Simulated scan of single mutants.
Amino acid sequence: MSVLTAESHPHAGTIVLARHGEPALSRKVLLSATQYVDFWARYEVMGLLPGQTPPGALKTFVAECGTLVSSTRLRAIESAQTVAGARAFERYEILIEAPLPPPMLPGWIKLSPKIWGFLARFCWWFFNHHDGQESRAQAEARADRAAAMLIELAADGENVVVLAHGFFNHLIGRSLKKLGWKLTKSEGYKYWSMRRFERPSVS
């Protein structure tokens, strides 16, 4: 897979969607559905696991981009601070992760947070299980607004880097594609990964 670099398109107004680093909350536990609700609530307010080193390519891209933004979640803010040092950046609530309300299975069923996350996202996506929180349709509309905001930030030709969240970054990417932007490089959705979108050429 090609490595993302800032030098590849130095004059293009690209948008890079980067996932935050590894959070401090361990996932090596087994939880009931109710316990997972509490786990997710704690996950949403915690910062990063100490001692991480972000990829050099991401640090280089951030150093050379025109605009850096993050979501308002602590793990995203600390990720941006880790790669940007003292550089100032804006934080936007519109970039926070989509919710993960789990299906209320019997309490004796204990699963890992990873499996709960998969089940919660599956039910949220395909069966509109949102437990009174943001629905899929609402999240997709928010992603459309976020994509429009990022496009506006990139309108002057400067590169934009976003430090946010895996699934909501995916939704923003879908919105960018609907508007004609192209995914030109991808590192997937692991911690610290980047996905770069380039604006359509003007004929």
Rank of each mutant, 00 (worst) to 15 (best):
E44F: 00
C65R: 09
F167Q: 03
S203I: 02
G180M: 00
G107V: 03
V161H: 02
L17F: 07
A12R: 04
T82P: 01
R19K: 13
S186D: 03
E152W: 00
L74E: 13
H11Y: 11
F168G: 02
F122E: 14
L111F: 06
V69Q: 12
A120K: 01
F126Y: 15
A146P: 03
M46P: 05
G66K: 01
G166Q: 03
P101I: 10
P103W: 14
E64N: 13
A63P: 10
L183C: 08
T72Y: 04
H9L: 07
R199Y: 06
S193Q: 08
K110Y: 04
L150C: 11
N159F: 00
V45R: 15
V45K: 15
P102H: 14
V161N: 02
H9N: 03
R142P: 10
E44W: 00
V16N: 06
Y189N: 12
E22V: 15
L183V: 02
S70R: 01
F127Q: 06
V160Y: 11
P113K: 02
L153F: 02
M46V: 14
T60G: 06
L163Y: 02
E93S: 10
L150D: 13
T5R: 15
R75V: 05
L100F: 10
K28M: 01
M46C: 15
P54V: 13
S135I: 11
S79I: 12
L119K: 05
M149Q: 15
S71C: 09
L176F: 01
H165T: 10
P99W: 09
E78R: 08
G180A: 00
K182V: 04
R27N: 06
I172H: 03
H170M: 12
R27F: 01
E198N: 07
L95C: 06
L31F: 07
L119E: 05
S79T: 15
S26P: 06
L58D: 01
V29L: 02
G13T: 08
